[in-house]
Design a protein around this nucleic acid. Structure first.
Lengths: 107, 107
DNA sequence: GGACTCCATAACGACTTTGCTCTATCGTTA
DNA sequence: TAACGATAGAGCAAAGTCGTTATGGAGTCC
């Protein structure tokens, strides 16, 4: 366990981030981008993650609503955004997710 | 892992229950009732848990506010209340907590 | 340049959360 | 019986959440 990642994790923020059906769902989808989202022209599924547009479509909410959900996840440190020529891709921040699990095991 | 406990766990409810500084704190206090609360005349710390009154005092909120926090934890299944001659004692529901951890490890 | 797509932010409304105070209930005790 | 202490519920206000539509910036394509 990386001590720096562990310390930087805001437990309350991370818990609130995933204590939402939509965002929990997103985290699960992002576990396997290639399997859960359409093929992407740009942006490698593994390296960069899923295109924001696909996430919005799957969530079946408006684009601003999806945008805000992603922002919550990013600010909780659980997801990493990659802006690339107009598109934004999101991938899980696995060290942070592991840190969250580790903290929760101590509860 | 008890399959019945596992299935009965409402993940979203449990997450929302602990995604609150106060309630997270309560769960941590209840890990060691004898160490975190004054000695109780009635109600065994291990068997029954901590007296609601002590929890209210430690939280430093009004009695109804503490009462409602405990209700949220009970309804999430994470805590078990024991009513005993006017007082209510709360203890952690360890199987449910373990079930929650188990579910979160899959995220 | 002009039209288009993608994304983020602002503004709004409905609903939920969380604190408070006041009140009712219930068991113990004088 | 009457008084007291612990708890839960009702009612209220402030703040947060989550959805929407409207708007504007940034990049792509003709």
């Amino acid at each position: 366990m990386d001590a720096e990642v562990q310390e930087s994790l805001d437990l309350e923020k991370a818990l609130k981030a995933i204590a939402s059906p939509r965002r929990l769902q997103i985290m699960q989808w992002l576990q396997d981008v290639a399997a859960n989202f359409p093929a992407q022209v740009h942006g490698d599924p593994v390296e960069h993650g899923a295109c924001n547009l696909f996430i919005t479509d799957k969530l079946e909410v408006s684009q601003p609503a999806a945008s805000r959900h992603m922002k919550v996840l990013v600010e909780a440190g659980l997801v990493v955004p990659t802006a690339r020529s107009g598109w934004v891709y999101y991938r899980r921040n696995e060290p942070a997710v592991d840190a969250l699990k580790h903290r929760l095991l101590a509860l």
